[in-house]
Design a protein around this nucleic acid. Structure first.
Length: 278
DNA sequence: TCATAAAGTCGTCAACACTA
DNA sequence: TAGTGTTGACGACTTTATGA
């Protein structure tokens, strides 16, 4: 298949390595001793075990892309390690959103790990679990006399940059609570007098629900958190996989160049040797 | 311009790896 | 050992390419 894309080639290669590992031809090894296996498609159907146990045995898991890429990057300076990249990102965040949080007077954490910071000036800032500011959310503080209460804040949010979206008016002391996660996140406005300890915001107030309902909601909430985390993890994993493939392609290019140079060098040396012996 | 196939993207599930 | 992270697999959906 000549028109196959890189992604497909990679997927096919992965499938071949995992499903036909027993027939694999070892052609090289990675720095930590892992064997790199390349299987040539001979057109055969290959073994496709229906037994899940057997299949699982064959599907021996590779080390994570992070590990492999870091191994590969250890001798290629041009390619930054993933951890280093993350560190850079963290540092970038530290100079932006986190600095605001540190100077804020109230910090609340939602059940999904997101942070809501209300600054001294009454501005609200939403940040994800990693400290990243939530996309499309911006806060405006209205200290003018038109504001019903001093320190009231308009929270403006939209799904797209530039999207006017909707606005919420928060009076002083009120907090925004994420009540649902997923594709359609929902937020509730609560007052601190609802019995919640400062700095911690729970999704539901105790004693307001029957126990089974509470358990069901707790289970639902846990599931939503899990799904949200997994969604994010899948995104991250795919990103790493792309980087990994890109890194391998770079490596191939470098090695091909080296190979070419060495062949030319050998040829030149042979010429010199032949001339001398004549 | 439309229909179709191929490729790409995303969310979810499940299984394994890792860690406290 | 429970909780959490990672990643292959799968299906649904979207985007792109191509031929009629």
């Amino acid at each position: 298949m000549e028109t196959a894309t890189i992604a497909q080639q990679e997927t096919n290669a992965t499938e071949k390595v995992t499903s036909e590992v027993n027939e694999g031809v070892s052609v090289g090894s990675l720095p930590d001793g892992q064997t790199l296996q390349v299987v040539v498609d001979t057109g055969g159907t290959g073994s496709n075990p229906s037994d899940p146990q057997k299949r699982r045995e064959i599907l021996s898991r590779r080390p994570s892309y992070r590990k492999i890429l870091n191994e590969l990057s250890s001798d290629v300076r041009a390619v930054p390690k993933i951890e280093e990249e993350e560190k850079v990102e963290e540092e970038t965040l530290a100079t932006s959103s986190v600095a605001t949080v540190m100077s804020s007077s109230s910090i609340y954490q939602t059940s999904s790990g997101q942070y809501i910071a209300i600054t001294q000036g009454g501005a609200i800032q939403l940040a994800g679990p990693g400290g990243e500011a939530l996309q499309g959310v911006q806060a405006l503080t209205l200290p003018s006399p038109t504001t019903p209460q001093s320190g009231a804040t308009i929270l403006q949010y939209g799904s797209q940059p530039g999207d006017p979206g909707q606005q919420l008016l928060l009076t002083s002391g009120q907090v925004l609570v994420q009540a649902a996660t997923g594709d359609m996140p929902a937020y509730q406005i609560r007052s601190p007098s609802s019995g919640l300890p400062p700095g911690v915001v729970m999704a539901a107030s105790p004693g307001t629900m029957h126990i089974p309902q509470q358990n069901a909601e707790e289970a639902t909430r846990k599931r939503e958190v899990r799904l949200m985390k997994n969604r994010e993890a899948a995104r991250e994993c795919r990103k790493k996989k792309k980087e990994y493939v890109k890194c391998l392609e770079n490596r191939v290019a470098v090695l091909e160049n080296q190979n070419k140079t060495l062949i030319e060098e050998l040829k030149a040396l042979k010429d010199i040797y032949c001339h001398k012996s004549e």
